[in-house]
């Protein structure tokens, strides 16, 4: 275990190493927020958006703010490196040491998130505080539920992108795929706008698919949209999907490493 603690701490160090890049990436979250706020404000001023979407203006702004931050927190970003490890032989250095590649990547991913969390958590506290002051019903249970679902959301997103990274074993140039998939998953996770505004079938599909459980689900706990029953179910789905992707990742790794090590020629 101590080796993964060490990887975790080095992940923290690594994220702190590039201060400018760190602040720029934090700043990069601000622009989509400004654009979306302007867009929603326009929509709500010029149409019956509240009736159509089922969100009050304040609710949708709260969602947008929180979802953008959560989406940054759960965001992966290691899949490109995994792909290079597979293609360029960087994987060798893990194979010759007594470490597990998946846990190594996982703890580094968590470590790299820590500085971001230290900025994001106070910012979210302020946003939620203001919303609370404006009349958002909030309880300690919801805050805890949000934090718990955020951690599980990170684990789930890691598992999804880990599988994606492992595609490098089969696809020579998976790098290009990551950009496209990243954007699709960003939308599919509810990181840009809440997907339940579509209602009906789309909402049902989103509720079954894993992606919403990385971003939309945690946000819907803290903004009071989900009742306790749905929260309970949501946790079930989060855990279930983590398990599914963990198993898939395990299987892909086993097959992939056989290919990599060229078992049987």
């Amino acid at each position: 275990m101590s080796s993964y603690r060490c990887v975790f701490l080095m992940g923290v160090e690594q994220a702190l190493e590039y201060r400018v890049s760190f602040f720029l990436s934090m700043l990069s979250a601000v622009f989509p927020i400004i654009i979306q706020t302007a867009m929603w404000n326009y929509l709500y001023a010029h149409s019956d958006a509240a009736g159509v979407f089922g969100y009050e203006q304040g609710q949708i702004l709260l969602y947008t703010l929180l979802a953008t931050i959560v989406s940054q927190l759960v965001g992966a970003g290691f899949e490109g490196e995994m792909n290079r490890d597979v293609k360029m032989g960087g994987l060798n250095k893990y194979l010759i040491r007594p470490v597990d590649y998946k846990w190594y990547q996982f703890f580094r991913f968590l470590g790299q998130k820590i500085p971001r969390l230290m900025v994001a958590v106070p910012v979210m506290a302020v946003i939620v505080g203001v919303a609370f002051w404006q009349g958002l019903p909030l309880s300690a249970g919801r805050v805890l539920g949000f934090l718990g679902s955020l951690i599980l959301g990170m684990a789930l997103n890691f598992s999804i992108f880990y599988c994606l990274g492992l595609l490098g074993f089969w696809l020579t140039d998976a790098d290009k795929l990551f950009g496209t998939v990243g954007i699709v998953l960003m939308v599919a996770s509810g990181g840009v706008f809440p997907l339940d505004i579509f209602g009906g079938l789309v909402e049902t599909v989103v509720n079954i698919l894993p992606f919403g459980y990385t971003t939309q689900f945690p946000v819907n706990i803290i903004n009071g949209r989900f009742g306790w029953e749905r929260i309970g179910m949501g946790f079930g789905f989060q855990l279930g999907w983590i398990l599914v992707f963990a198993c898939l990742g395990r299987h892909m790794w086993r097959q992939g490493i056989k290919r990599y090590a060229a078992v049987g020629g």
Binding site: S2, R5, C6, M10, Q14, E17, G90, N92, I96, R97
Partner: peptide, 30 residues
């Protein structure tokens, strides 16, 4: 794995952004 080690001149195992001592410490833990 504890008995062997391999160094490849064209590959690196050190963490690029951190001092080498951090990578040494990681190997110590591993």
């Amino acid at each position: 794995k504890r008995r062997i080690s391999i160094v490849m001149g064209q590959k690196n195992q050190l963490w690029w952004d951190l001092p080498a001592s951090d990578s040494f410490y990681l190997n110590k833990c591993i």
